[in-house]
Simulated assay, not measured.
Amino acid sequence: MIDTISYQNVHNLFKLNGFHLNRNDLCRVAYSFIKEGEEFEKSVGDFILDWFDAKSYIEMNTSGTTGTPKLIRVDKQAMVNSAIATGDFFDLKPGDKALHCLPTKYIAGKMMFVRSFILGLDVDFVAPSSHPMLQNDSKYDFVAMVPLQAQNSLSELRNVKKMIVGGARMSSAVEKELSKLKTKVYETYGMTETITHIAAKKIGEEAFSILPNIKISQDDRNCLVIDALKISNESIVTNDLVELVGENKFVFLGRIDNVINSGGIKLIPEKIENKLSDKINSRFFVTGKQDANLGEKLVLVIEGEQQALDEAIFDGLDKYEKPKEVLYVSKFIETESGKVKRKEILSGI
């Protein structure tokens, strides 16, 4: 199936905001968005025209997940292959109703459009916002959100059958609330270089399952290496520490560049954060702060005003996992997708 669908095709069941549109219709809509649309619509118009131009690739910026942010070329046919893999994994069918509420200047927003006109989805496109389903009673088969959007849409998600959440890690509190819903909610794993997700897991599960046509391994740092032959000609080496579970699953442990070396003991912040996740109500993270004796000392950084902490919250931690200091920041610095910028926050304290 993958080899027979070209990026130049638009599925005959594709709909945008209730209207059947073919390739020429989409280009007319794109010109209208660019000329008369709101700011978020202009980036959609630019993307649609880029998609249907003579080039076989799209240029976009990486997020810096696997290194320094850079401009890369992504093959359009690879984006089609990614869309089909998503359709197979989540059992999406032509005519399924989808909601697009992500910024199109990023890969996740671009791919929601590609999935829609390649798989023949009936997509409602709305302005990206922190509460994308406000006053929307429509029923959806498939929705993609970042964690903040999911958190703000809990009461509306009763109308959604399947949802993927990506862009940043979900807090345990949000995950707990989502697990109460009938909606099938999946956390995704991926990056620009892999053309969004290459793996997903149902919330509550520990291990990610890889999508079709993906192979995984580890390098000598125990970081994930991804081989996606229909997406990238080269192996993608990440900075994500993982534990492999057979050939098709892995457990994400943490970012190698977040690892703290405290007096010769290597600590993984994400592992400690998971242990504290249901004991601290505010947003928080743990990180390493320069220390004359230890090299780095483990510190806990909490968003909000200073508060009295019960020492009992640290009872579940190992000896070396207990923070040496607790710091408070009134408001965390974060990316547009909600990722907390740990280093920038720490440098400002």
Results as ranks from 00 to 15, higher is better:
residue 96 D to R: 14
residue 96 D to H: 15
residue 97 K to N: 12
residue 99 L to I: 07
residue 99 L to C: 01
residue 100 H to F: 00
residue 100 H to N: 11
residue 101 C to E: 01
residue 102 L to S: 06
residue 103 P to S: 05
residue 103 P to M: 06
residue 103 P to K: 09
residue 104 T to M: 13
residue 105 K to I: 13
residue 105 K to P: 01
residue 105 K to E: 12
residue 105 K to G: 14
residue 108 A to H: 11
residue 108 A to W: 07
residue 108 A to K: 10
residue 108 A to E: 12
residue 109 G to Y: 04
residue 109 G to Q: 08
residue 109 G to A: 09
residue 109 G to C: 08
residue 109 G to T: 05
residue 110 K to F: 15
residue 110 K to Q: 15
residue 110 K to W: 06
residue 112 M to K: 03
residue 113 F to V: 07
residue 114 V to W: 09
residue 114 V to L: 08
residue 114 V to A: 02
residue 115 R to M: 13
residue 115 R to F: 07
residue 116 S to L: 02
residue 116 S to G: 15
residue 116 S to V: 05
residue 117 F to C: 01
residue 119 L to N: 04
residue 119 L to K: 06
residue 120 G to F: 00
residue 122 D to S: 13
residue 123 V to K: 03
residue 123 V to G: 01
residue 124 D to F: 01
residue 124 D to V: 11
residue 125 F to R: 01
residue 125 F to V: 08
residue 125 F to N: 08
residue 126 V to D: 10
residue 126 V to C: 04
residue 126 V to T: 12
residue 126 V to Y: 00
residue 126 V to A: 01
residue 127 A to M: 15
residue 127 A to L: 03
residue 127 A to F: 11
residue 127 A to G: 11
residue 131 H to L: 13
residue 131 H to R: 13
residue 132 P to Q: 04
residue 134 L to K: 14
residue 134 L to N: 14
residue 135 Q to P: 00
residue 136 N to A: 06
residue 136 N to T: 14
residue 136 N to F: 00
residue 137 D to C: 04
residue 137 D to G: 04
residue 138 S to G: 08
residue 139 K to C: 14
residue 139 K to W: 11
residue 142 F to L: 10
residue 143 V to Q: 05
residue 143 V to W: 00
residue 144 A to D: 05
residue 146 V to A: 02
residue 146 V to H: 02
residue 146 V to W: 00
residue 146 V to Q: 07
residue 147 P to Q: 14
residue 148 L to P: 06
residue 149 Q to I: 01
residue 149 Q to K: 09
residue 151 Q to S: 10
residue 152 N to G: 11
residue 152 N to S: 11
residue 153 S to D: 12
residue 154 L to A: 11
residue 154 L to N: 03
residue 154 L to T: 10
residue 156 E to A: 13
residue 156 E to W: 01
residue 158 R to W: 03
residue 159 N to Q: 13
residue 160 V to K: 02
residue 160 V to C: 14
residue 160 V to H: 02
residue 160 V to E: 03
